[in-house]
Design a protein around this nucleic acid. Structure first.
Lengths: 189, 189
DNA sequence: CATTATAGTAAACATTTGTTCACTGTCAAG
DNA sequence: CTTGACAGTGAACAAATGTTTACTATAATG
């Protein structure tokens, strides 16, 4: 089936992070004429899965991206809309790959904002934060992941957990910010 | 700087979803000899950022992937370890791209399991689920996103919210499962 | 100073690339 | 039946590809 060949192509891209050449596609698709490849590729180009720019073949966003369906009300059940969008998670979550890194969370101090043990947070390196941002910081030379707060009256910065179990953390000596959490990712099971 | 050129290459890949040819890199890097490109590329190959297989150039996982640092205790602040790993979010979160899709969550019925309004869930199409799985289902012909439960005594399946505000949902007519939530993703700000 | 590595230019080249053209068999529609 | 569309074969080809070789300038090392 045609879908099988498309899946074979997607798998190739996943594995090799590039599209195969037409000669490679011969084997991949089980053809024996490059023209068969040529015609198939052109169909996918017309379908918007691939594109040709200055003679070079490349995937479009549709090629990888997952379909994203409209909002579903979790409170009251309503029909999921069909206003499809396509989304690549990497692109969606990571704005500046050069300054971003990941951190695996442990502990329960941020459960109140929906960050649990085992979650992965995407952090963007920067030295400043706004009040309410979740930051990676060093408070009195100890690393931590907490909510950054600015006391408007006293003009002092401190850290806060999102869990009533923990009191606010006021720095004795210093409070240095290393990054701001931009996204949270959780794998289930 | 060398980093600028690498960033230019990364940007090109982000934009075009392919690596440029050596001729294109001439302009991209500001060289006037393909040999300059050749040597630069070979350095990146040795550095493990790119690889050549049967004469074809492709990025390795290091090329995209974000560094992932060790666990940080959010409960008690401890030092983030430096045992780096590299992780591509798409690869990490999506096991079977062919059967996966995204859904934007609205409502507060799953706040208890850390899924909030505006979060995106990654769903894998399947008709069966285990007790405790978060599922996309049709209950009495209405779509919803809830926790799937199996009553061990009565052997009946029903849905449950993760929010005390909502009572369990026992189907009058039927309960059909369309997919299981595999991951949750939240963008902050 | 002399030396050696580094970063780049310039030209030449076999190989591979994507594309085109002409052709074949198969299957469904009128 | 005939027709036309579809899926694929096979060969030919200009253009582009990655690589190699020879050479230059600059800076760093001892």
């Amino acid at each position: 089936m045609a879908t099988d060949r498309l899946n074979a192509l997607k798998k190739f891209f996943k594995r090799n992070r590039r599209l195969p050449s037409y000669s490679e596609m011969l084997k991949l698709f089980g053809f024996s004429s490059k023209n068969a490849v040529f015609k198939l590729i052109n169909k996918w180009v017309e379908a918007g899965l691939l594109k040709k720019e200055s003679g070079k073949l490349a995937p479009t966003s549709h090629f990888f991206a997952l379909p994203m369906y409209g909002v579903i009300r979790a409170g009251y059940p309503i029909l999921a809309e069909e206003n499809k969008n396509y989304l690549t998670l990497d692109d969606y979550l990571i704005e500046d790959p050069a300054s971003a890194f990941l951190l695996k969370v442990s502990g329960d101090s941020l459960t109140g904002v929906g960050i649990f043990e085992g979650d992965i947070v995407i952090i963007e390196r920067k030295r400043e934060a706004g009040s309410g941002d979740i930051v990676l910081a060093q408070i009195d030379h100890e690393w931590t992941l907490k909510i950054f707060k600015k006391d408007r009256v006293k003009r002092l910065a401190y850290l806060e957990a999102a869990n009533p179990k923990y009191p606010p953390f006021h720095p004795r000596e210093n409070l240095e910010i290393y990054g701001v959490v931009k996204a949270v990712v959780r794998k289930l099971n």
